[in-house]
Design a protein around this nucleic acid. Sequence first.
DNA 1: TATTGTTATACTCTATAACTATA
DNA 2: TATAGTTATAGAGTATAACAATA
Lengths: 147, 147
Amino acid sequence: MKKTAGILKNGPLADMIGFRLRIAQSAAERAFMAAVQGTAPTGHFTILTLVRENPGSRQSAIARAAHLDRSSLVPVLDQLENLGLVERRKHKTDRRAHALYLTDAGQAALKKLERAVMKLEKQVREALGGNRTESLLRDLEDFSALF
Amino acid sequence: MKKTAGILKNGPLADMIGFRLRIAQSAAERAFMAAVQGTAPTGHFTILTLVRENPGSRQSAIARAAHLDRSSLVPVLDQLENLGLVERRKHKTDRRAHALYLTDAGQAALKKLERAVMKLEKQVREALGGNRTESLLRDLEDFSALF
DNA sequence: TATTGTTATACTCTATAACTATA
DNA sequence: TATAGTTATAGAGTATAACAATA
């Protein structure tokens, strides 16, 4: 029997979704940062993707899709705009709102990030297997929908 | 066909583990806080449990088990000690180290938190099904182990 | 009245680097 | 030399409340 010197017991923690989620999420975060070599945080990737998929959206809609308060999106968009990746244009019909678009540089930057992320996802699929990866995604989705 | 007014497309995000993990984890965090009525953050629950399961452990061991830097554990233990839930005692053989223990109040507080959390876990099991819950736990564990 | 984006502010969580006292 | 705990510090990420402009 192998000696597990200094490894502590998780106790009931091992079977708790919240604990497992926290560990998994921080692992995913680190893996993302390594994969993109620190060029962007996960939050930028998320917002860039949502804007590309829904060009012309207003900020509040993007915030909702990212599960962020609209005020939390402001500094993120400020950064992305300063980097020249996103544009806040005038909304056509609502003068309160902004319409969000990726710039050409934003499209290019997102493509580059996506290549790195896809590679990472592929590694996970190979290690975990396609079926388990799919069921993990479904389970996470259904879990989130409970609240 | 139902109208999905204002719901944005996730695009490739829907199939990305990192994104799904982030949403799920923040949902779990909110659910925990609601279940315990804000009496303790998830971090306290984690540390209390680890200390109870491994009484007499030194701080660095607990930090490792919680996937935290040892310096990040210090303020958490300070809080738990101020609340009278945890004790830093002298280590028997190593005068640099502390040996951590739950106080009686700590045992009681943890039991109360556990009741709330178990109720929450049960709800998840009922909604998701026992099998999917088990496989979700296993998948998260194996996912984390990849990095 | 309600919504949009913004500001001001604050809080939580976490890490890094440097320090001390031991080992 | 290396480890244990601490300190000082800083950064990321997020939320709440209040505000002006507009719907």
